[in-house]
């Protein structure tokens, strides 16, 4: 029975990794931009929620709704006035600029908040659990997984049921021809990054409630996000969720065998999938 419990915990952990990865997947899927600062932006989101909680004395679950529009605006401006300038046939400029952004963010957070680790204030909810048959599931991991599924359902609805979604897909296919339809690719890319930052904020909430964070943990979150995106197939949102689950299950199973193997098991699962399906489990048909 311990294995059922281990796998269930892994699936729920996969929800957190899917949240880390969804924003990255969205941005890559639309503009082929690999944002190396993604993990640091998640950490920055956690600090923003912490500041709001401290200043306003409100619950993190309330603070996240104030943080989301702020992060959207930051993402929109970042893409519109910095990252759009790096897009083109050469993939190196966006990598260099987002790498620089990552370092700048880490140092700014160190300067502003010190290297001390922080945590969002917890409540009874964070330690509550529910019995499902023979296994016990934490409310917080369930909320995290539910949020990941909701985010992916919402993104799919946005992509396939709205005019903005059509514009996202058209611009992703061919930005020049999209501009002949009256679409402004620069604004579409900025909106996509804004939405990615809203997801980053949700990921930041659960990161901050689940564990301690400090200015230097961004790159490790980026690696989990990358692995989930690549396992799922670049640009596939449901694939990203599955990628997160595969890493989560591999980590919990690895930890159950030997606690030292937890992180390594996730990376090995990633390498195995990469070996068997180099383009991921659900690659886009027309890349």
């Amino acid at each position: 029975m311990i294995w059922v419990d281990t796998i269930a915990q892994g699936i729920l952990l996969g929800g957190l990794y899917a949240l880390f990865a969804s924003g990255l997947s969205l941005v890559f899927g639309i503009m082929r931009l690999v944002n190396l600062a993604h993990g640091d932006l998640i950490v920055m989101g956690a600090y923003l929620i912490l500041v709001l909680v401290t200043l306003l004395g409100i619950s993190p679950f309330l603070a996240v709704f104030i943080a989301m529009p702020l992060m959207f605006a930051l993402g929109w401006l970042l893409q519109r006035y910095l990252l759009n300038r790096t897009l083109g046939d050469d993939i190196l400029p966006p990598l260099l600029v987002t790498f620089g952004l990552s370092i700048a963010l880490q140092n700014a957070l160190l300067e502003g908040f010190s290297a001390d680790s922080q945590r969002l204030p917890t409540s009874a909810l964070t330690t509550a659990s529910v019995n499902v048959g023979p296994i016990t599931l934490g409310i917080m991991p369930l909320l995290t997984f539910g949020s990941a599924v909701l985010v992916i359902v919402a993104l799919n609805q946005l992509f396939y049921r709205t005019e903005l979604g059509r514009a996202f897909r058209a611009t992703s296919d061919d930005a020049t021809t999209a501009s002949l339809m009256g679409i402004k690719p620069a604004n579409i890319f900025a909106t996509a990054t804004g939405i990615a930052m809203v997801i980053v904020t949700i990921a930041a909430l659960y990161l901050g409630l689940r564990a301690n964070f400090d200015p230097n943990i961004g790159p490790a979150r980026l690696i989990y996000a990358f692995e989930a995106v690549i396992i799922g197939g670049l640009g596939s949102l449901w694939g990203t969720l599955l990628g997160g689950i595969i890493i989560g299950v591999a980590q919990t199973v690895g930890a159950a065998i030997n606690p030292e193997w937890q992180i390594l098991a996730g990376h090995i699962a990633f390498l195995v999938v990469l070996l068997v399906r180099p383009r991921g489990l659900f690659p886009r048909a027309h890349d």
């Binding site: 999209a178 679409i183 886009r284 027309h286």
Partner: peptide, 29 residues
């Protein structure tokens, strides 16, 4: 384009990830 000019580009340049109807609708974005 927003001033009333539209173009049928050489090579058609349809959007591969859009259906026929979505390709038509994107013309009114």
């Amino acid at each position: 384009m927003s001033q009333g000019v539209a173009m049928v580009p050489e090579g058609r340049k349809l959007f591969p990830s859009l259906s026929v109807e979505e390709n038509l609708l994107i013309g009114t974005y």
